[in-house]
């Protein structure tokens, strides 16, 4: 903060014009199109006419009250929570080893976690279709071990979506979490151990509470990314299982109901903004703690 004050004193201002190109580009190709979506969302449509100008909340009421649309909304939120929780549970040990392991282990885990992010979403989905398909290696193994009689239907279900999304988005849980875990002084653990605490007690009473900022950051990212995911749910979720993103596309591309599709899109944006806002509120509420944790 001291640096900011100094910059203000020394640095000449008048560099504001450098922001002009970005502002113009974003206004024209981001803000304006989004504003159009808002305008569409309060309009009407009838059969044969894509959009009739109007100011009505009818579409929003439909999204939030009609059973079919409400089910999609609930499923989106539910999947967001499940993917976040699973990413936290499977990612936490990895984040811990990334924070405390030997250097080679850290690098290896980092590459492993980043790899799915670097592989095209389309290729990832194709890979899961092979691995989890009815004739795939996982099912062959399960049947071979006589764990199931029938092959398990992993794909084209909510389970398929969860697997596909945890695979790619758990990185966004592991990375902030390991950053935070790295900042926890290992001597705290040693002290607790020498005072007689078992490993589980050390985890529950010391590591877990101190890693809450990482959990919060990771959860915010994973939840919003899951709610915004489109390709994975549409490829691994199958036809009958809509989430908000796939429903938006269905309304606009197939049913050509621009107003309703736009309203769903806006509800999705609002959900995302609420989660990000809640996270910022969380950061503000522990601003003191957070700032002290910075090196």
């Amino acid at each position: 903060m001291a640096r900011l004050a100094r910059t203000k004193r020394i640095g000449p201002t008048g560099h504001g014009w450098l922001l002009l190109p970005v502002v113009l580009v974003l206004l024209a190709f981001f803000a304006l199109p989004l504003a159009t979506v808002v305008v569409y969302s309060v309009g009407r449509s009838t059969f044969g006419q894509v959009y009739i100008p109007d100011v009505t909340l009818h579409n929003y009421v439909l999204v939030l009250t009609s059973p079919t649309h409400l089910a999609v909304l609930t499923r989106t939120l539910k999947l967001g929570l499940i993917v976040t929780a699973v990413a936290l549970i499977v990612g936490y040990p990895c984040a811990y080893l990334m924070a405390r392991g030997r250097p080679w282990l850290r690098s290896a885990l980092l590459v492993a976690v980043l790899l799915p992010l670097f592989v095209s979403v389309v290729v990832r989905a194709y890979g899961w279709e092979i691995v989890l398909g009815l004739e795939g290696p996982v099912n062959k193994l399960l049947v071979g071990l006589r764990l199931t009689d029938q092959p398990v239907k992993f794909l084209y279900s909510e389970l398929g979506i969860v697997i596909g999304l945890v695979h790619v988005y758990s990185a966004f849980m592991v990375l902030p979490l390991s950053s935070v875990l790295q900042k926890i002084d290992p001597q705290l653990e040693d002290a607790a151990r020498s005072l007689g605490a078992g490993p589980l007690t050390v985890f529950w009473r010391i590591i877990l509470p101190l890693s809450v900022p990482g959990i919060a950051a990771g959860s915010m990212l994973v939840f919003t990314l899951t709610a915004a995911a489109y390709v994975t749910p549409s490829l691994l979720g199958g036809a009958g299982i809509n989430v908000m993103t796939t429903l938006v596309v269905q309304q606009i591309k197939l049913l050509v109901d621009y107003p309703l599709g736009s309203a769903i899109a806006i509800v999705l944006v609002v959900i995302t903004l609420l989660v990000v806002g809640a996270y910022n509120g969380f950061l503000a509420s522990r601003a003191g703690v957070y700032r002290r944790a910075q090196p």
Binding site: F30, L32, V37, V248, Y258, A265, L268, V269
Partner: peptide, 26 residues
């Protein structure tokens, strides 16, 4: 302004894509 410049990361890509599509068509 910074938040505004970052907002394409926050707004789900599917929404900005469809918005852009409608805009270009319009």
């Amino acid at each position: 302004l910074l938040a505004g410049i970052m907002s394409p990361l926050v707004v789900p890509t599917i929404v900005s894509s469809l918005a852009l599509l409608q805009f270009f068509v319009g």
